[in-house]
Amino acid sequence: MNTVDTLTQYAVQYGLQAAVALGILVAGSVGSRWAGNFAQQALEKQTLEPPVRLLLVRIVKIVVMLFTAMIALQTVGVPIAPLIAGVGVAGVGIGLALQGVLSNVMAGLSIIFSKPYKVGEHISLLGVHGDVVVIDIFTTTLMHADRSRVIIPNRKIVGEILHNFGAIRQVNLTIPVSHRTNIDEALAQVKDILQQHPKVLKDPAPGAGVSSLGESSIGISVAPWTAVGDYGSVQGELNKLILERFRARGIELPSSHHTVHLVNA
């Protein structure tokens, strides 16, 4: 009977505390969600990068949940000071074990605040290139020209040489023509095509000129600017248009030929 009374006493005493602590945790979960939504709405009015807003919203939620957990632990009689000290010691070990993850986080914060590139820009680094589609705390995701995704850990990016093309790229074409070609006429036709093409930017102005003098041909360099998303299509379209225009105007393209000398033995 004494055992039953003792269990009943503990159940009444600690069961009530546990129920209160559980209620506090539930309220904290709801409160963290509400605080996160409120922070999200407030930060959307500010000129911040999406990863920065995401990070700040997560921090708000974590702080609310940690504060709620401390209150719940105190409710059930757990001393907080020794727990905090133990968490600090455990944090050191966890930090050593997660050096790679933490270095990615620090590199991600550096990228977010220093802004060496932004979403929508075309960059090249570490032997890969593509359009920036996502900048996260841990990684940066590029969209390659073949529509594959390249995911780069942020710690690999910081400290490396990075080529940022921005939102526009320069197309570089070399069109060979025969030595008998009227160069002024050929350049005039190329410039007219560049002027009329809807995807070729007017500013910066496209360039066209003689780039090389070969034994069998003269190289005409064509260097227009276009939006990053139009880079691939513009190359093919310009080659096709220039070829058709040259044929229509009688501008001769070089053809390889060999002269064979027969020597009488």
Score class of each variant (00 low, 15 high):
Val60His: 06
Thr139Ala: 06
Leu238His: 06
Ile112Gln: 15
Gln170Ile: 00
Val177Ser: 07
Gly28Trp: 00
Lys156Ala: 12
Pro51Ile: 08
Ala90Glu: 05
His163Asn: 15
Ile151Val: 10
Leu102Tyr: 15
Ile71Phe: 06
Lys199Ser: 04
Val63Trp: 03
Gln189Met: 10
Ile152Val: 13
Asp230Ser: 05
Gly130Cys: 02
Gln46Leu: 13
Ile135His: 01
Leu109Met: 10
Ser103Cys: 12
Arg147Gly: 03
Gln74Trp: 11
Ile242Asp: 12
Asp146Asn: 06
Val52Phe: 10
Val177Tyr: 11
Asp192Gln: 15
His258Met: 09
Val177Asn: 10
Ser212Tyr: 03
Leu54Ser: 12
Gly236Leu: 15
Gln46His: 11
Phe165Asn: 15
Val78Asp: 07
Ser29Cys: 01
Gly86Ala: 04
Arg58Pro: 04
Trp34Val: 02
Ala27Gln: 01
Ser216Met: 12
Asp184Ser: 09
Gly86Cys: 03
Leu238Asn: 08
Met143Trp: 10
Ala85Val: 01
Ser148Asn: 14
Val132Tyr: 03
His257Ile: 05
Glu121Gly: 04
Ile183Met: 13
Asn104His: 08
Ala27Trp: 01
Ala205Gln: 12
Gly130Phe: 04
Tyr14Ile: 01
Pro176Ile: 00
Ser103Tyr: 14
His144Val: 06
Val234Leu: 10
Leu98Asp: 15
Gly86Asp: 02
Arg33Leu: 07
Thr47Arg: 13
Glu252Trp: 06
Ala107Asp: 08
Gln196Asn: 09
Gly207Ala: 08
Ala39Glu: 07
Ser211Ala: 07
Val76Lys: 05
Thr140His: 00
Asp230Met: 07
Leu66Phe: 02
Gly130Arg: 03
Gly166Tyr: 00
Leu66Asp: 06
Ile112Tyr: 05
Leu25Thr: 01
Tyr10Thr: 05
Phe113Ile: 05
Gly100Thr: 06
Leu43Met: 07
Val92His: 13
Gly250Val: 06
His129Gly: 11
Ile24Asp: 03
Ala205Arg: 11
Gly95Ala: 04
Leu238Arg: 02
Gly28Phe: 00
Gly77Pro: 01
Gly100Val: 02
Thr139Ile: 00
Gly36Met: 02
Ile84Val: 01
Ser211Glu: 08
Gly91Tyr: 01
Tyr117His: 11
Val78Gln: 07
